[in-house]
Amino acid sequence: MIRVNDANLTENLPSQGLALVDFGAVWCPPCKMLKPIMNEIGAEYGEKVTVLEVDCDESPETASTYGVMSMPTVLLFRDGQPVEKLVGFRPKSAYENLLAKYV
């Protein structure tokens, strides 16, 4: 999982392919529970899916741009554009099912 911020999200978000972007905060308990799941997905999907992490406290502009109102929020990007949004903590299977529609 690559940690990004307001300044470098664009350069780390692939223009081709899939990316999961996890919006959270270090003080958020559900976000802490989600982090190992995102790391597993990043390891399991390898080159097929880029997994990025945004701390909403450090990157309020990015969170606002993508309408993040609750944490954690995970956005799925396809070819650089957001296509799906999951709000709140979900089990790993929810993210796998989401990715299965696009991989």
Rank of each mutant, 00 (worst) to 15 (best):
L34F: 06
C31E: 01
E53K: 03
S93H: 08
P30M: 07
N12D: 11
E47G: 12
L13S: 14
S64P: 09
L86G: 07
V51S: 05
L34D: 01
G42K: 01
T65K: 15
V83L: 09
L18W: 05
Y66T: 10
N39G: 11
P82I: 00
I37P: 01
V26W: 12
N39K: 15
S15E: 15
T50H: 13
P36H: 01
L13I: 13
G42N: 10
E96H: 15
P82L: 04
V87N: 03
V103K: 12
Y66I: 09
P82V: 04
V26L: 10
V87A: 11
D22M: 06
S59Y: 03
R78C: 08
A43E: 15
P30T: 13
E47Q: 14
M33H: 06
R90W: 04
P60Y: 05
L9Q: 02
P29C: 10
T73R: 01
R3M: 14
F23V: 02
N39D: 14
Q81I: 11
Q16F: 09
P72N: 02
G24I: 04
V51H: 10
L34Y: 06
T62I: 09
A19R: 00
G88K: 02
L20F: 13
M38R: 03
E96A: 14
M33S: 13
R3Q: 15
G80H: 02
R90T: 07
D22F: 08
S59M: 06
C31Q: 00
V21A: 05
A43C: 07
F89M: 12
L18D: 07
